[in-house]
Each structure stands twice: as C-alpha cells, then as structure tokens.
Simulated scan of single mutants.
Amino acid sequence: MDTVAWLLEAEDPSIRWQAMRDLGGSPPAEVAAERAKVATEGWGARLLALQPADGCWGGDVYGENGDRRSVTWTLHLLRRLGIDPAQAPVREAVERVRTGVHWREQEGGLPYFEGEVEACINGGVLALGAYFGVLDGADRLIDVLLSEQLDDGGWNCDAPESQRSSFDSTLCVLEGLAEFERATASTRPDVETARRRGEEYLLERNLYRRLSTGEIVLPRYANFAFPPYWTYDVLRALDYFRGTGDPPDPRIGPAIELLLHARDADGPWPAGAPWEGEVYFAVDAPEGRPSPWNTLRALRVLDWAR
C-alpha cells in the first residue's frame, strides 16, 4: 500500500491537510485551503454544529463515567483535528465556552479556561487555551502546575498522596506547556525549565519503561488509540516530542522499535482498542483495521526520527 497516497485521499480534511503538511510536501497555500475545510465539512463541522447555545457540549464540562461528549473532550478533539482557531465558526464556539462554561463549585467554580484542580486536566486546559487563543487563565494555570511538579520531574494527579510521577499526568502537562510556548513565543524561562524536566522524566524511561526493571510500565502504553483522551501511549508521546521541534533524543530508540513492531505488513498501522465511554461519533477505524490517524502520526514521527 502507498500509505501516503492513502492518507492524502482520506475521507476527512483533518487527515488530508496534516498529511499534506507533514508527508506530502504540498505548498503552504494548498495546505491552508485544505485545513480551512475542517470547520466547514466533515468531523470538525459536525462537532461545531453539536454545540448548544450555552457552549456546554454534552451538558458537561469534563465528562462523567468516561463520557467523551463534554466541553473538554470536544475541544481536545477539535485541536487534534487541527481546526483553524482563526476561522469565525471556531472563534464563536470558543467564545461561548469562554463566557458561558464554568467548572463545578467543588472545583473552584472558575471560568473554563482558568482550569480546576487536577494536573492532567489543567495541563489539557492550558493546551486548549493556548491553541484557541484564550490565555485568560494561563498565568494561573502555569503557576499552579509549576508548583506541583514533583522531585522526579513529572506530575501526578494523585499528588501529594503520591510523590511518584504518572506518565499520563506528565504528558498532559507537557502538552500544555509546549502549546503555551508555541502560542506566545514565551520568554518565561521557568516554563521551559519545567518542560525540560518533565521531558527528562519520560526520556530516562525510554518513554515507556520502568527504571527498576526496564519492563513496560503498563501494557496500555502500547495501545495506540485515537483520540487519546487523558491516557498515555508511546505514539502520543513520540508525536509530542516531534512537535517540540527539537532533534530526536537517542533514548527514544526503544520506543521507535516498539512503534515499528506495531506496523502491519502492508504498510499502515492498525487502530488500537478504543477507550470506553460515549462519543458523538467515531473518528478512527475499528480496532485492528488500518488506522489513518495512527499511520499519519507514525509516519511523521519516523520522518522526524531519521
């Protein structure tokens, strides 16, 4: 299979435009034109159309019992689709969230983009605010997250009861810090320092191993599901490091080998087991079938790693 051609002919513009940018070598104007379609057709347009007038997708801010139809997971999916934040329908949807959605009282009752109490959620909210251009709560979020960084360099939503970092929480925070730096051309050295320490936590462990035994920390780290929600996996981590723009660290080698081992013989990567919980609609292939999202992300990671 010509996997790049397959991706360039994908059913949804969110896949096509990223393949054009990252794999196809298309001119920037053509990439931008394809990206603009995400807000007007396909999955991105469908998600925008599902937002109620009060801004609260699914009637929930985060999503109880694994429900993925909430404000948080809808915005994260739109970000991963690469929807253009500057387009009018996107700006209007985000503004409805900014003015109309608040966290619950037990979580501070703050406006959505100012975050709540858990590091993994706050890291995600920081990423969303930076991506969509809403930096109202960014300074607060960064101050809280930097104060919660553990001695080993990472984060854990169960801290302070646990003083050992979680791969899940750490990657969620790293994505937020990196998105903030990209959006603001940040001159805050404390943000970069914290991000580098968090990256070191993962790199020391080859992105998936225990320091003590070298074994995989959790089998689910090898399950490449899209969208990933709060959950860590090796492909998500590799794509994060690629996105920082830094050259590949040699310590990602074992993770690259794991990624290559997961590839189907005819070229694509299969879809992982989806996480439980209600969704508006599927955006990836059924488990075990060729996955456009895993293939797109894996190919661009391999190009970067070379």
Rank of each mutant, 00 (worst) to 15 (best):
R91N: 13
D60N: 14
E64W: 01
L235S: 11
G82W: 04
Y131N: 00
T244A: 02
P250E: 06
R182L: 13
A32H: 01
P28Y: 03
G55C: 13
R197H: 09
L81I: 10
E179G: 05
D60C: 14
G42R: 03
R220K: 14
Y208W: 12
P274K: 06
P27Y: 04
Q149K: 10
I121L: 05
L218S: 11
G154Y: 04
E278I: 00
R80V: 00
S166W: 06
T244V: 04
P274I: 02
W230M: 02
S165Q: 08
V173E: 00
G123Q: 09
V117H: 15
P286K: 00
R91E: 09
A298E: 02
L48M: 08
Y62F: 11
I15P: 05
G63M: 04
R195I: 15
L259E: 04
P290T: 07
E276S: 15
V4Q: 14
V117Y: 13
A271W: 08
V173K: 04
E287W: 06
G44S: 09
E192T: 12
E204V: 10
S166Y: 03
V97R: 05
A130Y: 06
D136T: 04
M20Y: 05
R195W: 12
A10H: 10
R205E: 11
G267M: 09
W269K: 07
E92R: 15
T170L: 03
A86K: 12
A130M: 02
P248T: 06
T295V: 07
L135C: 12
W6Y: 07
H76S: 10
G24Q: 01
D136F: 07
C56N: 08
S291R: 13
Q18T: 03
S14D: 01
D84E: 06
I83E: 00
A29K: 14
R297L: 12
T295N: 06
G153V: 09
A305N: 03
G154C: 05
L47V: 02
V144C: 01
P268S: 09
L8K: 04
A33Y: 01
E107V: 03
A45N: 03
A10M: 11
H76V: 05
G108S: 01
S212V: 08
T3V: 15
A237H: 12
A285H: 07
A19F: 04
S166R: 04
A138I: 06
C172W: 14
R79E: 10
G42S: 11
E161A: 14
D136M: 09
R300G: 01
P270Y: 00
G25H: 11
A119I: 00
W275N: 10
G55A: 12
D54A: 12
R205W: 10
Y62R: 12
E148T: 08
W43T: 01
